[in-house]
Simulated scan of single mutants.
Amino acid sequence: MIRKTRLVHREADGRRIPGTWRHAFINNGGRYFLTDLFIYADGIVDAWEPVTLEEFEQKLASGWVATELPEGGRASGHHLAEWTFGTPRTWHTAEQLLAEVRDTVDELNGRPDSTDRCLAAVDRFMADRTEANRLAVRETYYAIPETVRHYALGDMDLKDWPLRILAAGPGGTDEVAEEEVGREDYEEAIAYFADGAGWGPAAGPAADACPPSLHVPHCFPAASDTPDKTALRNTYPAPIVYEGTVHPTVVHAYWALSTLDPAARAAITAADSPFTAKRLGEEAVRHGDWERTRTAVLGRLLLAKFTQHPELAAVLLATGTAAILYDDMDDPFWGDNGGRGRNWMGRLLELTRAELPAPAGPEPVRRAPAGR
């Protein structure tokens, strides 16, 4: 359950995104750093950089967000202390931490989390005491992260004992006590739930659901037969025709259009990479109206890119209504950059998405007129 003292927020595209935080260890080059892990209602998790839940899962799997701490490992708390692990003991596995983070996102949005789903299964069982419904309680109970199961009932004395007994069933094994569940204990657990008083976590205030955000990280993309969200980056190698000139990427076109010098334009367009094109563009003399018109120009270039490449348009349309957070480490005007930038690239991608035609659906079935 989220503690009110841990509520935070960030601003994204003019929206206030609620969140919370917890501690975590980051393994950076073999050294462990105690840091704050920020979790937001739109599914963005910030552990030194903002990532989606799927990207966070990858960081857990790689050990970058560390749930295993080695004996003798060097650790640091920023401007606080440095130490070496003696006989470390951790409470989480990567799977448990991920499950807790997913629960937190649900809670921030006012949606049922794994505990709520388990208690709902208990209600169904108590209304119809079939073995199938009891097994549903068991399944949902073990879906609760192990580290928080004992808080599920909000009972300071029994903790989750009645849930464990109901999940195990008579003759089954209470996996915490490592004992067989007798009929007397089982009936006592049933009576606990039948009483209905004093169990279940207190309901918090309903929250406005926050649609998930899409994070487009800073990376060097390569063309692919099955492009993913890296295709949304301006550096993605998708040639576009604009004003009669073929540009290898949006970056080439953007910087070529920033100058009126024909020689500089030609050199930028012919640059061997987007990064060379950007460097040449920054060195060229930009025309006087560029600062005022650059956002509109980039919007037109994005529309050209996605209308000329239907396979990339499909990637953008597949983002639905998600807010798009675009990383640009060099420019806080274009990038979201962990909530510190203005994210104009993300906004332009959302506007472009709105201008693209919806994908064609199946042909409607034509019915023959009645009587024929």
Results as ranks from 00 to 15, higher is better:
369 P>Y: 09
34 L>Q: 06
217 P>I: 12
188 E>Y: 05
175 E>C: 04
95 E>R: 10
261 D>E: 02
266 A>P: 00
259 T>Y: 10
184 E>F: 04
18 P>W: 10
182 G>Q: 06
281 G>C: 14
343 N>G: 02
109 N>R: 14
120 A>H: 10
135 L>Q: 13
91 W>T: 09
72 G>D: 12
24 A>E: 08
126 M>K: 05
219 C>I: 05
359 P>V: 09
370 A>L: 15
86 G>R: 12
366 R>F: 11
285 V>T: 11
310 P>S: 14
81 A>H: 05
63 G>V: 05
65 V>Y: 08
227 P>G: 09
200 G>R: 14
63 G>H: 04
285 V>A: 09
106 D>T: 09
290 W>D: 00
355 E>N: 02
169 G>H: 03
72 G>H: 11
137 V>C: 01
191 A>N: 12
175 E>K: 08
252 H>I: 09
239 P>E: 00
79 H>I: 05
26 I>L: 13
54 E>A: 01
40 Y>V: 00
42 D>N: 01
86 G>S: 12
369 P>N: 08
248 P>K: 11
93 T>W: 04
224 S>I: 12
8 V>M: 10
186 Y>C: 00
224 S>T: 11
276 T>M: 14
361 G>V: 08
345 M>P: 01
302 L>E: 09
320 G>D: 04
213 S>L: 07
8 V>N: 01
239 P>L: 13
88 P>V: 02
141 Y>K: 04
257 L>T: 09
207 A>P: 00
133 N>C: 05
126 M>N: 04
74 R>V: 08
45 V>C: 04
163 L>C: 02
294 R>F: 12
129 R>I: 02
197 A>P: 03
39 I>H: 04
51 V>F: 08
276 T>A: 15
231 A>G: 01
348 L>V: 10
100 E>K: 14
281 G>T: 13
313 A>R: 07
369 P>F: 10
100 E>Q: 15
231 A>Y: 07
296 A>W: 07
40 Y>M: 00
48 W>M: 07
301 L>Y: 12
349 L>E: 00
